Computed example of a mutant assay.
Amino acid sequence: MAKSLLASSLSVRTKLLQTGVSLYNTTHGFHEEEVKKILEQFPGGSIDLQKKQNGIGILTLNNPNKMNAFSGVMMLELLEKVIELENWTEGKGLIVHGAKSTFCSGSDLNAVKALSTPENGVALSMFMQNTLTRFMRLPLISVALVQGWAMGGGAELTTACDFRTSSSKMLAHTRRDQFQSIFDPISKAKDMTLLFVLMTTESVIRFVHKEMGIVPSWGGASRLVEIIGSRQALKVLSGTLKLGSKEALSIGLADEVLQSSDEATALQQAQEWLEQYVSGPPQVTRGLKKSVCSGRELYMEEALQNERDVLETLWGGPANLEAIARKGKHTK
């Protein structure tokens, strides 16, 4: 009996790891269509996706008037883009960044205030956990290009990416009135000058949830523990630490610090950095990502089976045969 229960549990875990499968359904008390109707009531901004011929996609959080905060419609569009990426068979890599040299300030406070009941909070949490988990499981190697602030939900989004790069400087063009309303609820400071200086010196990742009286709810805490360990994660979350480029790099949250503050240049640098990991045939890169995902999320027996399944699709295939022929020439 115990063995059959374990087998059933493993089967469920393996099925969930497949792309295109939702994390939650009505058996979990999650009614996705109802949540979508609620989120549609909060428009603003967009999630833009550019799929390039080299197999690298550019996902842009585009709501610069609110420091790219997620509106309800943007949350819906993010899921739509994730589904589109799940079906992009030529894709190998993905860069996530925010418009106008700012990553993301979290959720639009207008939506947060309107959805203030515990029931709404849990429903929103399940929706975004589902979206970001599907995002994390994409067979694409992803990198978050963090410029300016990545706060709250924006910080959580960075943890759903495989890598994080940050810029060491940022252009000083953000208006005080543009970010005043966003910082007021999380800071009692009367003078915003210091915050303005912080924003214009370098990228900052900050999990501000504690100051909002909540905890990360989009899966950010769980993923943060995996990235930097439980001890460091507790410091970051409970101390609401402002992690600049150097601090993030030193604790393993950031993987690279880019030197350009110009949006277009930083985006190009991020693409060049990512290309070292996505070079070669897309099916091989996608297979590697799938193997890593299974090793992270499945029990060993199931992870090993997944490796064999992936290998079966590649062994004796075009990329494999071409590599063997190429290596053979080198040995002559």
Rank of each mutant, 00 (worst) to 15 (best):
K66M: 10
I182D: 13
L16V: 03
T89Y: 07
P318Y: 01
S261I: 04
L311V: 03
P318W: 01
L78S: 04
E307V: 11
Q53S: 14
Y277Q: 10
E202Y: 04
K329Y: 05
V146L: 12
Q268H: 08
P216L: 09
Q180Y: 02
Y277C: 04
L157T: 01
M136L: 14
T201E: 15
F163W: 02
K66R: 14
R134Y: 03
W88A: 03
G280N: 05
A7F: 07
P64W: 01
F42W: 03
S105W: 10
Y277H: 09
A264T: 06
T158N: 03
I205S: 04
V21G: 00
C293N: 15
Q232S: 12
Q276D: 07
E86L: 06
K327S: 14
L59W: 00
L288S: 04
A303I: 02
E80G: 10
K37Y: 00
E312L: 11
E312S: 14
L198T: 03
G91L: 11
F42K: 02
Q50F: 09
H31G: 03
S166A: 12
S11V: 03
L314I: 09
S11M: 06
L157G: 01
E86H: 09
H330W: 11
G152F: 05
Y24S: 00
R176Q: 13
K169W: 02
G106H: 09
Q129V: 02
V12M: 12
T201H: 08
Q129W: 01
I214M: 10
P185S: 12
A2G: 11
L124H: 04
L124C: 07
I141H: 04
M75W: 00
W273F: 12
I214N: 09
M67F: 15
S222F: 01
G44Y: 05
S4K: 15
T193M: 13
L6T: 11
T14I: 04
L274N: 08
T158F: 04
K100H: 13
G91Y: 10
K37T: 07
E247L: 10
Y24F: 10
E297R: 14
A221T: 03
H209V: 00
R175H: 11
H173I: 10
V257E: 10
V208M: 08
R13T: 07
P139L: 15
V143D: 11
W273R: 09
G44S: 08
Q18I: 00
N120Q: 14
V236Y: 02
L298D: 04
V73L: 13
K242W: 07
S9H: 14
K113S: 15
E307W: 09
D162C: 07
L258N: 04
S8N: 11
E297V: 12
S166F: 07
Y24H: 01
D255C: 08
G317E: 05
V215Y: 05
W273K: 09
T285Q: 12
G57S: 13
G252I: 07
L16K: 13
A155V: 01
T133P: 00
